[in-house]
Amino acid sequence: MNLTLFVWRQKGPAEKGRLEQFNAKDISPEMSFLEMLDTVNEGIIKDGKEPIAFDHDCREGICGMCSQVINGVPHGPQEKTTVCQLHMRNFKDGGSIYIEPWRARAFPVIKDLIVDRSALDRIIQAGGYISVHTGGVPDANAVLVSNDDADAAMDASECIGCGACVAACPNGSAMLFTASKVTHLAMLPQGQVEAARRVCVMTEAMTQEGFGNCSNHYECQAACPKGIRVQFIAKLNREFIRAQFKGARRESPQ
């Protein structure tokens, strides 16, 4: 396969970026998308130029490191697939491919296709956990969890924190990311103690980080490589309303 790539190049956060054209030659359809980029980079290096910087690590679709908007869709054209799992057999020989970084104010570009997603970590730090300390917990079977609830919690916690939902959202909102964690923990009896406080502080942290507001476009769901559903946002909204009636204590613990 031979392809024409238009890749976003940006030297640093403060620099201006632009699309640069590359020719990807002799690409095997068996290659993954990132292996295609590896091949292009080898060529760039041999030409004495700086290769395209992109985030990647596990290359098996679970670490959430890879982050590219390919032909206008975060993680590219194949449904429920991260960039690293996307294979070249999904592209047409002779076609062109646009490759851009996640774009959102909360995700400043570090270099080329690499963005800073630490804002997502800070949403979790605000309260995306159960405040249990190590040791002194009851036996694992002491609290029963229905099969359905455990399943729903698992569905929500499959989120890999890649940020595709933000990249896809016309509002740059991180609501799907936030909702997946809120739902995961609210579905479990262990997580319900802090549920009211959690939903408030996490959504507030989301706004503070500069993410936009959710207005139900559902683009996030369409882009999510792990099939996280917008129903979890509905669940977050229910949790938020319930929290108002519970008169949640809002202050962070000191």
Binding site: Y129, V137, A140, N141, M187, Q190
Partner: peptide, 18 residues
């Protein structure tokens, strides 16, 4: 025990046990 307390959604049987 620790992981269950943290909210790790381990697989459960229909009675709710691990």
């Amino acid at each position: 025990d620790q992981c269950v307390a943290q909210g790790v959604p381990f697989a459960r049987d229909y009675a709710g046990y691990l």
